[in-house]
């Protein structure tokens, strides 16, 4: 490195410029959105002459908005629970085992993540009608869970593949049957992966528009509601709602990151 200080320095400045350009590109829209939510005017744009919390108080007073938030969170939590259960189970079945058709099983498991959202949404809609399932919460939870399972499988399998076989054998050796071994050795080892996958699933579900739109009943999820509001034009309320959602998801993401890092350090 010291042989070519000039070149290296030039490189570094160049890379730094690209990096900051990228950061601006990502954050400017977010910052604009947040700022507009505090602007004391219905008109979106600069200059901002005075500030207000009016839109926020409005949003928090609006029971419909609040219940939509709750609805979206409930869907996210339920679908995540299902994906985690099913995904972990599939990962444990597939990892480290050889059987005929393992490759096929694995491929089929990953498929839901690869199908474009709009196609799977339409397919789900048709399937749900055929099965006689009403559009609504159940249908959305089901679609989200199916879509998210592959991510859980991948993350949990990756973690599982690093669990030394001797850990399992040691537990068996000390008197644990396969079930106790799974609960007391394998599962604790998987916790960081399961936690990470959960956060990912929660955010995927909370964020989903297409499936929720196609499979929803009369009650909209948050993205669907925002979409509906948009039809009557951009408004500061939307900015306020979106800002709250942004803060919420960012907080969850950051907490999860810190938590997993601390856990990794402990072990």
């Amino acid at each position: 490195m010291n042989d070519r200080p000039e070149l290296f320095r030039g490189n570094r400045i160049f890379l730094a410029c690209i990096y900051w350009a990228f950061v601006l590109y990502v954050f400017v829209p977010l910052i604009l959105m947040v700022l507009m939510g505090f602007k004391d005017s219905r008109f979106i744009g600069f200059p901002i002459r005075s500030w207000t919390l009016e839109w926020y108080t409005g949003v928090f007073a609006d029971t419909e908005v609040l219940s939509t938030f709750g609805y979206s969170i409930a869907i996210a939590v339920l679908s995540t629970l299902i994906s985690i259960l099913v995904g972990t189970w599939i990962a444990v079945l597939l990892e480290g085992r050889k059987f005929a058709g393992r490759g096929l099983t694995f491929g089929l498991t990953l498929l839901p993540a690869l199908v474009p959202g709009i196609i799977s949404a339409i397919a789900f809609r048709i399937y749900a009608r055929w099965l006689g399932i009403e559009p609504g919460m159940g249908a959305i939870v089901w679609a989200h869970a199916v879509h998210n399972v592959p991510f859980v499988v991948l993350v949990v399998m990756a973690r599982l593949s690093t669990l030394p076989k001797s850990q399992i054998e040691a537990a068996r050796d000390l008197g644990a049957d396969p079930l106790i071994t799974f609960l007391r050795i394998t599962l604790p080892y998987l916790v960081p992966a399961i936690l990470g996958a959960s956060i990912f699933c929660l955010l995927l579900s909370f964020d989903d528009f297409v499936r929720s739109f196609f499979l929803g009943g009369y009650e909209p999820t948050l993205p669907v509601m925002i979409f509906a509001m948009l039809r009557s034009g951009m408004s500061p309320e939307i900015n306020a709602i979106a800002t709250v959602a942004l803060v919420l998801t960012a907080a969850i993401g950051l907490w999860a990151e810190r938590f997993t890092r601390r856990m990794n350090k402990e072990r």
């Binding site: 030394p164 001797s166 850990q167 054998e169 040691a170 068996r172 050796d173 000390l174 008197g175 644990a176 049957d177």
Partner: peptide
Amino acid sequence: PPEKRQVNMVFQDYA
């Protein structure tokens, strides 16, 4: 199976 035996093992990687 191992859990039924009155035998214990010290593993090479300690496990």
